[in-house]
Design a protein around this nucleic acid. Structure first.
Lengths: 145, 145
DNA sequence: CGGGAATCGTTGAATATTCAATATTTTCCA
DNA sequence: TGGAAAATATTGAATATTCAACGATTCCCG
């Protein structure tokens, strides 16, 4: 009796997610190339664009980075004068992050690029498919927590 | 006139994909913990489980890793006697990768863990939603190439 | 109140990934 | 055929990420 072939990797949800994520991220990175900014920094600037201070913990969660990774990325962004730290007066363990004017300006340029990517996807992939996919992903994320 | 708030990051497809991927990958990693093997090595072992030799190029594409990253991961796996290299006789620029018996045995254990994750997801998230999501991801990946 | 436990962020060392350059082999065409 | 160009994989240096440990602050409860 022949050995049963195992389910191909391309049928695993985990693999499909990784593949789709990699591809979309690459395309976004390509668009960001001219600004020389990695996708993670766009996320950070975007989250900070509400003008409110966000603690490192909040931010790490929101931008999908581990604490130490975020700390070091923020160090670089501080060097580039995109963001700055303020100690939280109410809880001095915390550090509140803010976006500088330079950071806000960059965020706007990156937002344009990201929106143009979204438009491109919606066009080539279809509005309905895009909306359905987003909805399913949101629901998966919610269930997975 | 108030500054128009930009579209929240949680509504970007790129972000939703990154978030879902991160979450699902974490859960899979947690299951693999007891074998002490990262998800990428599962992918490699799985692709090699057809018994045919796969070149590094093919493999890199299939397992979603850059060439140099794959080379170094394979180095580790060779040290662990999970895979081995054979120079391709037909094209001596190429290296063909094979899984060892040890690698095959590990692959089977990892497959079980991965399948059990799939089952868990299908159960909590719904069979239809899971199938729909996979279909949409496949189609996105296809379009994005 | 006092002090142990929990929370928050950072650091340094270990590990992993990436970029550019390289070596080898094959392909192609002048 | 000969030799330039392309394809394949690896290497080393630079960079980035992760893990475990730490320091500082706050919380909680006896």
């Amino acid at each position: 009796m022949a050995k049963s072939p195992s389910k191909p990797i391309t049928e695993h949800l985990a693999y499909l997610l990784a593949q789709a994520n990699r591809e979309i991220n690459r395309q976004l990175d390509a668009r960001f190339r001219k600004e020389g900014v990695p996708v993670e920094q766009w996320r950070i600037l975007k989250v900070l664009s509400d003008g409110k201070g966000h603690s490192m913990g909040e931010l790490a969660e929101a931008v999908l980075l581990n604490h130490p990774t975020l700390t070091k990325m923020v160090d670089r962004m501080v060097s580039d004068a995109l963001v700055y730290r303020v100690q939280d007066a109410d809880d001095r363990r915390k550090v509140l992050m803010f976006s500088s004017d330079r950071g806000k300006a960059l965020a706007q340029r990156l937002n344009s690029l990201a929106l143009s990517q979204e438009a491109f996807i919606a066009e080539n992939y279809g509005n309905k498919a895009t909306a359905d996919l987003k909805r399913l992903l949101e629901s998966l994320i919610e269930k997975a927590n």
